[in-house]
């Protein structure tokens, strides 16, 4: 089976006023259909940049990358993915339902179909009854759920998530993590998930990509075979803790590089 995302020797150097910044260096990574892959690492390790390259929000300066067998740009134009940002990024002048309908309006989908998809996806993230509220009337967690519903309404095969729960408190984060896992099990979408939380990465992923900074590169890739059914208290099992330990070791090694 061909991988959905395939990066070969990917390089990206930003030109800034303070000289070049080597954000990605020699990234080689294949992600298969239906995988849940987490990118984890300290800030500056290029995990968000890598996600943005996959989404065609940044252009690599070297190497090659394909998404669904196309260039990232073609994949973006074919709406291959839904992107969830760290902030909900809802438009404050649109109601929740209208926010979720936004990508569908851009895609030129008919009003009846739009209404169906908005309703389905609001139900999926448990936001029924909030259709006509404006974003400021919702809590941070609900806003982020709305933004996930918005990404899902496109019906993409792939979800790219950039620290979507980073700004939320731990209780809400736990809740959304288990919801996301259920969603993933139900829809079988490919998920690429950026995080800097070890428990979050281990709890959600099938594979964890540990990255290290300056220049941003892949330190190691850790398999995470905890099975499909993951209740929240799986996080206290020895298997879980062993993987978490492995990830922590990887992060520490990657970091000590700097000296």
């Amino acid at each position: 089976m061909n991988p959905v995302i395939s990066a070969q020797n990917l390089d990206l150097t930003f030109t800034t006023n303070d000289g070049p910044v080597h954000a990605l260096s020699d990234i080689t990574l294949d992600i298969d259909k239906g995988e849940f892959v987490s990118l984890i690492g300290p800030s500056g390790c290029g995990k968000t940049t890598l996600l943005r390259v996959i989404a065609d929000l940044e252009q690599p300066t070297g190497g090659s990358i394909s998404v669904n067998g196309m260039t990232p740009e073609q994949a973006r134009i074919h709406r291959a993915y839904g992107y969830v940002f760290q902030q909900a990024a809802l438009f404050p002048w649109r109601t929740i339902a209208d926010n979720i309908a936004l990508p569908l309006e851009v895609m030129g989908i008919a009003a009846a179909e739009r209404a169906t998809r908005v309703r389905d996806n609001m139900a999926l993230v448990d936001l029924m009854g909030f259709e006509n509220k404006f974003p400021w009337q919702l809590s941070g967690g609900m806003q982020q759920r709305a933004s996930i519903a918005r990404a899902l309404s496109v019906q993409p095969d792939m979800l790219l998530m950039d620290e979507p729960f980073g700004a939320l408190d731990e209780i809400v984060r736990d809740h959304l993590n288990s919801q996301l896992l259920k969603l993933w099990a139900k829809t079988q979408k490919t998920v690429v998930f950026v995080t800097h939380s070890i428990p979050e990465a281990v709890y959600l992923s099938t594979r964890i990509v540990v990255m290290s900074p300056r220049p941003g590169r892949i330190h190691s890739i850790i398999d995470c075979n905890l099975g499909a059914d993951r209740p929240l208290d799986i996080r206290e099992t020895p298997e879980f803790l062993a993987i978490a330990h492995q990830v922590r070791e990887g992060l520490r090694e990657g970091h000590s590089y700097e000296g």
């Binding site: 929000l57 993915y81 992107y83 902030q87 990024a89 438009f91 936004l102 851009v106």
Partner: peptide
Amino acid sequence: LHLDLMRTYSANKVQTLWKL
């Protein structure tokens, strides 16, 4: 962030102008 969002939808300039 909002401009990036419109880009992930491959929105054209007119749509970005009108909707954002």
